[in-house]
């Protein structure tokens, strides 16, 4: 049943894993509106290793979403290059999937149909597809809601579906743009735990955009701190707190404090 999964053991060592995603001197400027001459992103360079959980942290407007859109292939950079496993990327594809901040489910499809959407058209017989869907529906805890429509479920559940429909495609890199920002504190915590649980189970690389310092410290192996105008990397911080992380430990607070002072 788990043959299609790449399980990574508890002894994951991202620092020696191969580089999956490489961003080389990437810049972006938009036409005339807003961004001015400085551009939105300037000379961003970074690498993500297989299985790493990286949080991109920065104030509103520093170009986090723009970076993610470029990585996803929704828009081209003004200059610079993105490589996935060494190959330049230029268009969207199932190897780099996005969980959007806003609701991007297909409203005419049920939870199960939404999750199955990306599998259609793959070389996979129906039975196997259904089994995969079943597995991912239960992985995100929606077994009882398979036949509900998006408009009939809560915001948290929608984000679970959004997560399942891309994880089922086994992307090399999962791109998440403030996916939990619109949820209440409790639901957000549930979703963070779910994400960590799935990340332990499936060995995908995650680039997680957030402006919430606590969230970043809870999730990340590395936090990439962005600064504004132009958007560029201010600092690359390794978080070596042991997992599972507790939000009440002194180490956790210390990290949050020091990063918060960096942002100011």
């Amino acid at each position: 049943m788990t043959t299609r999964l790449r399980i990574v053991g508890t002894g994951r060592k991202p620092e020696v894993a191969p580089v999956v995603l490489e961003i080389q001197r990437l810049s972006k400027r938009f036409g005339t509106h807003g961004s001015g001459d400085a551009g939105v992103l300037k000379e961003i360079s970074m690498k993500a290793r297989r299985g790493e959980m990286i949080c991109i942290l920065g104030r509103s407007g520093c170009g986090k979403s723009t970076l993610l859109k470029i990585l996803a292939g929704f828009m081209p950079p003004s200059s610079g290059l993105v490589r996935l496993n060494g190959n330049p990327v230029s268009r969207p594809g199932p190897d780099r999937c996005v969980v959007f901040q806003e609701d991007a489910l297909f409203p005419w499809l049920t939870v199960r149909e939404n999750i199955a959407f990306g599998l259609k058209g793959r070389k996979m017989d129906r039975g196997e597809q259904q089994r995969e869907v079943d597995r991912f529906v239960s992985l995100v805890g929606l077994t009882d809601y398979g036949d509900y429509l998006p408009q009939e479920i809560s915001g948290g559940m929608k984000q679970r579906v959004s997560l399942a429909r891309v994880l089922i495609l086994q992307p090399e890199v999962l791109l998440m743009d403030e996916p939990f920002a619109a949820l209440d504190a409790q639901t957000r915590e549930e979703m963070q735990n779910l994400l960590l649980y799935l990340w332990e189970k499936l060995s995908h690389t995650v680039l997680f955009v957030t402006h919430d310092v606590n969230e970043a410290v809870l999730l990340a192996d590395r936090i990439i701190l962005f600064e504004k105008e132009p958007g560029r990397i201010k600092k690359d911080i390794k978080i070596s707190l042991p997992r599972p992380r507790e939000k009440s430990t002194e180490g956790y607070f210390a990290h949050c404090r020091s990063i918060t002072s960096e942002i100011r």
Binding site: A72, G73, F74, R91, P92, G93, P94, R96, C97, V98, F100, E102, A104, F106, F117, G118, K120, G121, R165, V166, L169
Partner: peptide, 21 residues
């Protein structure tokens, strides 16, 4: 909404299926 079409593109949907699905 362009985001629905982007979602399709990232899931590997080609233009023909994107139109009908």
């Amino acid at each position: 909404s362009p985001i629905l079409l982007q979602a399709g593109a990232m899931m590997g949907v080609n233009r023909l299926r994107g139109t009908f699905a």
